[in-house]
Write a protein that binds this DNA or RNA. Sequence first.
DNA 1: AATTGCTTTGAAATCGGTTGCATCCATCTA
DNA 2: TAGATGGATGCAACCGATTTCAAAGCAATT
Lengths: 342, 342
Amino acid sequence: MKKEITIYDIAENVGLSPTTVSRALSNHPRVHVTTRKKIMDAAKLLGYQSNIFASSLRKRRSKSIGVIVPKLNSPFQSSVLAGMEKIASQSGYNLVISQSMESLEKEISNTNIMYNSRVDGLLVSKAGTTDNIEHFQSFFNKEIPVLFFDRVPENNHSTGVVINNTQAIYDATAHLIKEGCKRIIHAVGNLQINVYADRLKGYKYALMDHGFVFNAENVISIELDEDSGERIVKKILNLSPRPDGLLVSNDTSAASCLMALKKRGIRVPQDIAIVGFNNDLISRMVEPNLSTINYPSYHMGEVAMKNLVNHLGDEQHEILQKTNTITLRSELIIRDSSKRHT
Amino acid sequence: MKKEITIYDIAENVGLSPTTVSRALSNHPRVHVTTRKKIMDAAKLLGYQSNIFASSLRKRRSKSIGVIVPKLNSPFQSSVLAGMEKIASQSGYNLVISQSMESLEKEISNTNIMYNSRVDGLLVSKAGTTDNIEHFQSFFNKEIPVLFFDRVPENNHSTGVVINNTQAIYDATAHLIKEGCKRIIHAVGNLQINVYADRLKGYKYALMDHGFVFNAENVISIELDEDSGERIVKKILNLSPRPDGLLVSNDTSAASCLMALKKRGIRVPQDIAIVGFNNDLISRMVEPNLSTINYPSYHMGEVAMKNLVNHLGDEQHEILQKTNTITLRSELIIRDSSKRHT
DNA sequence: AATTGCTTTGAAATCGGTTGCATCCATCTA
DNA sequence: TAGATGGATGCAACCGATTTCAAAGCAATT
């Protein structure tokens, strides 16, 4: 039960006031260099550790940033988080992380906890069922910046960091058309989520632009998990004429589809060409390698965090006010799963 | 710039003292039910949010738990974190997460930040280069519990949550021997890390117990990343006689090896049988499916966090003192990559 | 010598919730 | 009826760092 060392102990030790000690420790310019040095030395000697609560209570800032993601255990999210942590750590911010489990209820609860923890800023990727952003109102009221990434709400005034999902799937669709596909299936997640809704748009636009007729039967909205391949493939094989192109909105599910197809002796890409999404590790490990959209997840984490941190450092709080959306570059990577011409 | 609502505002509102308000809000028994109700209602009405800093400052507890992992973007770690977050959230704890990037220096810095942030407990999976635990001394001194998981330090008195790595690789090795492998390569990570050192032991013991002679040439210590397959396979193919069994200490690398082998026309499992480690998604998606060790990562996160939380709730602080190591069940999963008999 | 201006330092209030001790009042016991 | 018992509530002192305002020290200028 060692006693806690405070600035008062240091003050006593060096024969100065706590005020001066406080200033010296926070590199305030109005302390003589010699004094500062003496205080610094004493602090180190005594093993002083600043009490973050006292400091935060007084300064009304926590030097921590909250992050709410739908699920922690996804290759995409963990990569985003890694990028965020890198920047936050460099800038002296702590990361308080929680997951909404795709539930609006839990997202609200997490948001309140974050508010209560007095985070200086919040980074959010929405849960699937979240269709409003009322629960962030307390943040807006207190002008605590909230920045959305990947899954951003519609029609809002907060800043978002995204990729152009519409364009990405447009390109992928156009690619499949160019490869000679006549009937292209789009397997997509929950259409309440902007990400998937935008992708569906891209798919429709591309069809339209290439003289194809959109057919709702060709869109499968389904949870894109590890086992989704079987379900998707079953649906596909019931269709007539049989589809020859498949756009799957994440690589895990695309890989799962690939397995399900191969199990049935259907050749990829000869019988059905596949394009995934995310450029996860798995897209490079299955056979044939999956064509996919490179989603710069790590970079997205970095960019989102950098913007938030810059905003917090900016006294006028102008950075985010002036920015509405930051769109990162994504690109189609063509691999063997969709190459039908040699 | 809304004014902050404090217990003093509530006190004034209901005509009671801040003391009673504080007690009512924290469900102290010495407040009359009627009074409590009145206070609760006023709090809700005024939109009161407890100031966690003031509370933590006084109570000297933060209701947050620090987690330090080597890298956030790994399937294993993100799954562990997901398990931890679930339990922490249920128990009312916040998670402050940082990554050491496999660097001792950063681990030390992170540890100090965590200490400074006054986390109530710390969960750590060591960085590769960490060979001592001096930097946790401040935690030990103040009796703040530190619990290690997966990568635990040697010879220490802290609690660790692990699997039996030795046994796991022992089983895998024995399995390959039973499948008729005559020369088994063990591709393993940094041997400074207990996890890999233990696995090497298991490999050696199994060889010994089955009348094989250990040969240092058969052990490849290498970073087990996505590209490691090429490097491992090159080494293997230079050996004579050519190995016919390959134990790779994580699935990412095992999948990478599989690709490198297939590229060279070497058949798996006929020419070389492979066993991976972790039971990551990828082991079920490559062809042939990888035999692997099921590592209960999500469960490990839950168990580690549960123990820490129970310990914190236990006034006598006896739980962790009495426990040294918690070993979770892991198991060999045999899939096609190592089945040589039908 | 007196005034001005600058740098360096300090006293004291403050952030908001918690808690040891005291007080008040109603009920109960002898 | 006096005194004891106990539940409900309040006073005031914390927890430790920050910050406003002011004062003190010192040199330069008039």
